[in-house]
Design a binder for these strands. Structure first.
Length: 788
DNA sequence: TTAGGGTTAG
């Protein structure tokens, strides 16, 4: 019966008005006035004025509470009608609050119940567990056992077992259940089985499961989900087979446990079969099932299907919304992800920690620090930083993406708990922002905390990329040793980083040795090895490797072609470059991206075919970005083509007026041909727009420590020593015939000043430092100048 | 009328 059937009149009596006021006072909306009117009418039946409504009269009202505000309203009615004092009614109210996520109100009701029975105690424990207040649940359970004088029953244990945080407290409860003489029946038994499985004690769980006197679907699910959560997918599947042999059919819980492992094992077929089962058995209206399906399709990159499931869901919860935001974020569509987040706000869906975990990388990618700061303060205001390491890590990563490593570091310092990902995020953040030295220092610091945090794949990958950026092969080799010690050398990603490190440091032979040690059935290591050959001008070797890759049946991807085209570009192999640029489209059906066009513009430009490069840009199927025009502008500098340089820079400033580097490049083109007026115009333009070029830097490794130098930098503690060494070296090389090339100084200054500028170039500072530390021979400086 | 087993993350 619906509460509307109880409505007997439409005008409000004084008592019903009282109910209304009371219901407003405790926060329920006017829309639910009929509920209070109905109850008030119950009280004021003119024919039986003394008769208060019986508990049975409230039954339909209990069932009508589909929203939190309904519960508040019913609460008011119970108070007014004098039925709140009934233990039964108030405990049901307690449960209703808990079901609607309001454990605080549950507690307030609980406190008002004077003669609590075990139903009341059990309900309060489960109210806390249901809403995630595990510590409070344990406290209430203790009070129940120690102070109430009542005996826990079979209803008590399942929620308490569920709230265990570690296996030891679980074991204690297991003993307690055993001592009190409870049979491990289906509920308590399944709880214990799942508790052991959850903490990874699958053998104990399995033994208990096998010895259970009775097993229902829930018991099977406890065991299957235990295997799934521990990544033992084969055991989960064989358990499923046994379950079916015993005539049990999968329900929504079984389905929800299995769907995530379909995505993990890349088994789309099983996922589709389960989806079919869901539809056939009418499980498609379960929110959990829909969320699990949605997530599985998103993990396979099938966003269209995920979106369709979301659109067709009758009921959506926070997990559904979070999953959609994460789905688009993880599939490189941050703008749609952001739209979903906005829609959440429009629909008044409150974000939780996981919403923010997905939102942080989106904000990081938007490039606006003020948004980043508001997101951070939103989290801090709610104290979520303390609750969840993953969120802290996500915020660090966001600041790293925005280029604010000082903020990322501050967040790191303030984290109450740091796990391996916190360290990895900081290290890779520094490395990605060009602060290789800081990355290395952090990695060294991490090693000192080895007892608390064990490095993983991500650590080696970040550390290696930092060492390869500063060209520190000795330190890189130490990481290599650590990788071998941890038996990770056969991991494709770690191995590829080693290839990359040796390659970037110029140790091509070592890179090749490493390459032949790692599995090469995917494009990942091939891309690295092709790229490092290309980088050092070994275009032919890069091409040979590319051919070998095809012989071994490994399909090249977009990145392979970027590596290959850039190898052609660095070796001046124009014809080969064209050939593969066409081949990728014709033979491999790949559409060239901006990066491929960028390589081609670079290839043609470097070779002096500026008109052809311009023609290629004009034929592109999408608008060229700053990297394309930047490549053309760079080529104009090499070939001193002022006219084309002006065209390229005009386009460049249209698409990216913020990058100071391009202004410098154009002014250098003018400077090269001595057009100092042009230089002045461009420089003042850059100054007016408040742009400052990020200075170039050079690094050198001495005794395992890496030092970084910037042009004209005087802040080094050994500055005087370096300066003296530099003077001596310059004098020496001048005495053996070195003539400074003033053309390389792109400023309109006197020749002696040009000497000074050349002499304090960051690479020279680094070499002078190295020389002063190691008594390096001046030959290094000579060699360096040739490459200048 | 209280209970077990389920979906999202850095």
């Amino acid at each position: 019966m619906h509460f509307n059937h109880l409505r007997l009149g439409s005008s409000l009596s004084s008592k019903s008005l009282h109910v209304f006021k009371l219901s407003r006072a405790i926060g329920c909306s006017r829309r639910f006035l009929p509920l209070s009117t109905a109850a008030a009418t119950l009280k004021t039946d003119p024919h039986q004025p003394e008769k208060r409504p019986c508990l049975i009269d409230f039954e339909p009202l209990f069932h009508s509470c589909t929203q939190a505000s309904h519960v508040k309203c019913l609460h008011a009615i119970l108070v007014v009608s004098g039925r709140f004092t009934s233990n039964f009614a108030s405990t049901r109210l307690l449960n209703l609050y808990a079901h609607h996520g309001d454990a605080c109100s549950s507690l307030s009701v609980f406190d008002q119940i004077k003669a609590k029975d075990s139903y009341t105690w059990n309900s309060m424990v489960s109210a806390y567990v249901r809403n995630g207040y595990l510590n409070e649940a344990t406290k209430i359970f203790r009070q129940f056992v120690l102070t109430s004088g009542l005996r826990p029953d079979v209803y008590t244990f399942p929620p308490v077992i569920k709230s265990c945080k570690d296996v030891n407290s679980g074991k204690k409860l297991h003993c307690c259940v055993y001592k009190m003489g409870f049979q491990p029946d289906v509920f308590v038994g399944a709880s214990l089985v799942h508790m052991y499985a959850r903490f990874g004690f699958l053998d104990i769980a399995r033994k208990m499961f096998d010895e259970m006197p009775r097993r229902d679907l829930g018991s099977w699910n406890a065991m299957i989900s235990g295997y799934c959560q521990n990544g033992d997918n084969d055991a989960a599947m064989s358990m499923l087979d046994s379950m079916r042999l015993e005539g049990m059919k999968m329900d929504s819980v079984t389905v929800c446990s299995l769907l995530p492992i379909c995505a993990q094992t890349n088994d789309l077929t099983s996922g589709l079969l389960i989806h079919l089962y869901v539809v056939k058995h009418g499980l498609e209206f379960d929110v959990y099932v829909n969320n699990a399906l949605l997530n599985m399709y998103a993990k396979f990159g099938l966003l269209g299907i995920a979106q369709q499931i979301f659109d067709e869901m009758r009921e959506r919860d926070l997990v559904s919304w979070n999953s959609m935001v994460a789905a688009y974020e993880q599939n490189d569509d941050p703008s749609t992800a952001l739209q979903f987040f906005m829609k959440m706000q429009e629909n008044k869906i409150k974000s939780d920690i996981l919403t923010l975990v997905s939102l942080a990388p989106i904000v990081g990618g938007m490039g606006d620090i003020s948004n980043g700061k508001s997101l951070h303060s939103f989290i801090v205001r709610r104290d979520w930083m303390i609750l969840n390491v993953a969120l802290g890590n996500a915020v660090m990563d966001m600041y790293a993406k925005l280029g604010f490593m000082d903020y990322a570091d501050r967040v790191f310092e303030q984290l109450p708990v740091r796990d391996v990902i916190s360290w990895n995020t900081l290290i890779s953040g520094y490395a990605q922002n060009g602060l290789a030295n800081e990355a290395i220092v952090t990695y060294e610091k991490m090693k000192k905390h080895e007892e608390e945090v064990i490095p993983n794949h991500g650590t080696w990958v970040s550390a290696l990329s930092a060492y390869s950026n500063v060209g520190s092969v000795k330190q890189g080799m130490k990481v290599h040793a650590a990788v071998i010690k941890n038996s990770l050398f056969s991991d494709v990603y770690v191995g590829t980083c080693l290839v990359d490190m040796y390659g970037k440091c110029g140790r091509i032979e070592d890179a090749m040795k490493m390459f032949y040690h790692i599995p090469r059935d995917t494009s990942v290591p091939w891309n690295a090895v092709i790229s490092c050959h290309g980088m050092h001008g070994h275009g032919k070797e890069a091409l040979t490797l590319f051919e070998n890759m095809q012989v071994e049946g490994v399909r090249p991807d977009h990145i392979t072609f970027v590596a290959l085209l850039s190898a052609c570009s660095h070796s001046g192999m124009v014809d080969e470059g064209w050939r593969w640029f066409r081949s990728m489209q014709e033979d491999f059906s790949m559409k060239p991206s901006l990066k491929h066009f960028g390589c081609m513009v670079d290839l043609l430009g470097r070779a002096g075919h500026l008109e052809k490069a311009y023609g290629l840009i004009m034929s592109m199927p999408f608008p060229p970005d700053s990297s394309i025009w930047g490549a053309l502008l760079g080529a104009c500098k090499i070939h001193g083509n002022v006219e084309m340089g002006a065209i390229a820079s005009k386009q460049l400033f249209n698409v990216d007026s913020e990058n100071a580097g391009y202004y410098v490049l154009l002014s250098n083109i003018y400077a090269n041909v001595g057009r100092w007026e042009g230089v002045k115009v461009i420089r003042s333009l850059a100054r007016d727009r408040g742009l400052k070029k990020i200075p170039g830097w050079s690094s050198i490794e001495v005794d395992g420590k890496v030092d970084v130098f910037y042009m004209g930098n005087r802040s080094h503690p050994r500055f005087d020593q370096i300066h003296n060494e530099l003077r001596e070296l310059t004098a020496k090389i001048k005495s053996i015939g070195y003539v400074p090339n003033h053309k390389d100084v792109l400023q309109d200054v006197e020749d002696d000043e040009k000497d000074d500028i050349l002499a304090t170039h960051s690479e020279r500072l680094a070499i002078a430092f190295g020389s002063s530390m190691l008594q390096m021979i001046p030959r290094a400086l000579l060699m360096h100048d040739q490459a200048f």
